[in-house]
């Protein structure tokens, strides 16, 4: 699968990664090569093979409905660049 410049621009925007205009073309090329490498897997016949979801045969473990965490406002906010009255404060998001 070949990736073009427009796709790189869109994916970068969706991931909120800034990519300068002159980097788009080289990155499209690199991504295309990476995808082509991975595409070799398509040559393997996987008819009737269930998709693998884990390397160990395990089922999802469940937890009981008990409150064991929380009341850690200061720890939660410790790394925030800006806080106000217990809230995270971020540049205005206009709806």
């Amino acid at each position: 699968m070949a990736v073009d410049k427009a796709t790189v621009r869109r994916v970068a925007h969706l991931a909120r990664i800034r990519v300068d205009e002159d980097h788009l073309a080289p990155m499209a090329q690199e991504l295309s090569r990476i995808l082509a490498f991975a595409e070799q897997l398509a040559e393997v016949n996987v008819d009737g093979v269930e998709p693998m979801t884990s390397v160990t045969p395990m089922a999802l473990r469940m937890r009981e409905d008990v409150v064991t965490e929380g009341d850690a406002r200061d720890a939660v906010l410790a790394n925030a660049p800006l806080t106000r009255g217990g809230f995270f404060a971020v540049p205005k998001v206009v709806e």
Binding site: V76, R84, G86, F87, A89, K92, V94
Partner: peptide, 14 residues
């Protein structure tokens, strides 16, 4: 998100 507590900021409660 609370948008009406500050003119320049949105406040976030998780």
């Amino acid at each position: 998100s609370i948008h009406d507590l500050d003119p320049a900021l949105s406040f976030v409660d998780l």
